[in-house]
Structures are given as structure tokens and as C-alpha cells.
């Protein structure tokens, strides 16, 4: 008896009828994968970089995300401490062990308890970097890695993202290309270095499952906060 895989493929190939043996088919598929052409890109985010940053900020704020713009990395711990105070939160942070975040001058805020690692049930506030941000829809792009655990994006009540303005792009397509470029830098093809998880996050967790009423904080973070570091800093 042939395997289910064989039988599914046999039925599919029968459905393709006379086209099935067309030698142009494998070439067309290989070409599309290799060149991964872009389809129509909306005009909305085809803007100079400064305007993309402004569009990104406007888009996330419309989703109830708060944005705190800072002049440089040195300001980040203070602003995060302010956020905790504003929301009456304990001063414990679960932080992604990412080089940028580890290099922040946390010691200037001795009240803050910094703890590096993945999300645990007791963690109320996480701090993570992002890989990129997409102006078109106000979306953050985050990836899993040895320094950026995915659970920090979903387990805590408050998710704080430290983002540089230079990470803001126009579209999903540009963000994907940035990730391909970054992954291709090592000796392997980019796809071989593709991470386990890529998260696109657009606003805090929400649901409308009860009578269609929008409610924030369903299972993921109730609040999303971005500390946005100015370019050139």
C-alpha cells in the first residue's frame, strides 16, 4: 500500500491534468523562491525615513501603545523606571540578555532589579529589543535567538520594547529583507539561519470574543510600551 504522502501527491498531480509534466513548472517555482519578487507595495509607507518614524509612532499610538522618545541609550533605564512608577508596578524587570540591553547603564537606577532570561509566570514586566519596526501598520518584528527569548513577548502583563529609530522600515517586505541580509552574513545561506520564531506584534493583546466588544489584555501583554531611541545616538 502506498503512503498517504504518495496518494495525496498522486491526486494533486491528477488534478493538474495535462500541465503536470510541463518542464516550465519546476523552473517557475525555483525562480519564484530564488528571486522572491515583491508584489504591489502600498504607497502609504513609501516615505523619507523621518516620516516613516512619525507614521510608525502615530500607528502604534492609535493602538494604545505608549511611545517614549529618548535622545540616547543612557536615558533608557530612567525612562523605564518612570514607566514602572507611572503604572504603580514593582521595580523588577525580566530582561532579554541582549547585548544592547545588557550594556545599558542600569546601575544608575539602583532601585531596579534586573533579571535576565525567558518569561516565567511570576514576571510582570519584560524588556526586550526588537529586530525591526514597520511603519505601514505600526508593527514590531521580533525574533527568537540565544539572546531574545520569545516567551518575554507574551507571558508578562507589560512588554517594554527598546527600539532604535534606525530600525523603523516602511513595509513588511523591507523588514523581511533586512532579516535575510542579517542572516546571510555568516557562512551559510540565510534560510539555514532562519530563527525558530519570528513575531510580528501590532499593539497589545486583545479579544472581541464576547459580544464583539474589544477588550485589551486577553492572554498576552495588557500593555505595550516602546522606548524609542533617536537616530545618531
Amino acid at each position: 500500500m502506498s503512503s498517504s504522502r504518495d496518494r495525496i501527491f498522486a491526486t494533486l498531480r491528477a488534478g493538474l491534468k495535462h500541465t503536470v509534466d510541463d518542464p516550465a513548472r519546476p523552473a517557475a517555482v525555483a525562480e519564484r523562491i530564488a528571486s522572491h519578487p515583491r508584489n504591489l507595495l502600498p504607497q502609504r509607507a513609501q516615505l523619507p525615513h523621518a516620516e516613516q518614524v512619525a507614521l510608525f509612532t502615530a500607528k502604534v499610538e492609535a493602538l494604545t501603545v505608549t511611545v517614549d522618545s529618548v535622545a540616547g541609550v543612557a536615558d533608557v533605564p530612567g525612562r523605564i523606571a518612570d514607566y514602572l512608577a507611572r503604572h504603580n508596578l514593582p521595580s523588577r524587570l525580566r530582561v532579554a540578555p541582549d547585548p544592547l540591553l545588557q550594556s545599558l547603564p542600569w546601575s544608575e537606577r539602583p532601585m531596579l532589579q534586573i533579571d535576565y532570561g525567558g518569561g516565567r509566570s511570576q514576571d510582570l514586566v519584560s524588556v526586550t529589543p526588537a529586530f525591526a519596526a514597520i511603519a505601514e501598520t505600526g508593527t514590531l518584528m521580533l525574533q527568537s535567538s540565544s539572546t531574545t527569548p520569545t516567551t518575554l513577548h507574551f507571558v508578562p502583563d507589560h512588554h517594554i520594547v527598546v527600539l532604535k529609530e534606525s530600525q523603523v522600515t516602511g513595509t513588511l517586505e523591507e523588514a523581511f529583507q533586512r532579516l535575510r541580509d542579517k542572516l546571510a552574513k555568516s557562512d551559510k545561506d540565510w534560510v539555514e539561519n532562519w530563527p525558530r520564531t519570528v513575531n510580528f506584534v501590532t499593539g497589545p493583546s486583545r479579544t472581541a470574543d464576547i459580544e464583539g466588544v474589544p477588550v485589551l489584555g486577553a492572554h498576552g501583554p495588557r500593555r505595550l510600551h516602546i522606548v524609542l531611541i533617536a537616530d545618531g545616538a
Binding site: 500607528k59 532562519w194 520564531t197 519570528v198 513575531n199 510580528f200 501590532t202 499593539g203
Partner: peptide, 11 residues
């Protein structure tokens, strides 16, 4: 919505 809150690629 313009984008759902979470779009996740798992590989």
C-alpha cells in the same frame, strides 16, 4: 484591523 495583533512564523 490593518494587522492582527500577533502574526507568528514558526520554523
Amino acid at each position: 484591523q490593518e494587522m492582527s495583533c500577533y502574526t507568528t512564523l514558526s520554523c
